[in-house]
């Protein structure tokens, strides 16, 4: 699956525009100084076409070898980078 590095994200929303499965949602990050919105990827909807990786002008998306998505809760497969940081 693809991983987002929000330090590189410039909130341009190209990934959310192009996502054929409407899996990417731009979410407000009030703590950010300059670019207030960052992408949250719902891997329950994602079709793994990697169009987001391709269109990103700042290479904020990185493909990875991770594939273990199985979870008991639907919310767990929505990868919110900020929330994950809080949990861990």
């Amino acid at each position: 699956m693809q991983v987002v590095d929000i330090a590189k994200c410039i909130s341009c929303r190209l990934c959310a525009f192009d996502c054929p499965a409407y899996a990417i949602e731009m979410t407000l990050n009030p703590a950010a100084e300059k670019y207030k919105y960052y992408p949250v990827v719902d891997f329950g909807k994602c079709v793994f076409c990697y169009q987001c990786v391709r269109v990103c002008p700042t290479q904020a998306y990185v493909t990875s070898n991770m594939y273990n998505l199985a979870s008991f809760a639907r919310e767990k497969i929505i990868k919110d980078v900020l929330k994950k940081d809080i949990e861990s």
Partner: peptide, 13 residues
């Protein structure tokens, strides 16, 4: 309903 670019992936499916 979708754009030309999104339809590429739809056509593949």
């Amino acid at each position: 309903d979708n754009t030309f670019l999104r339809d590429v992936f739809l056509a593949g499916r």
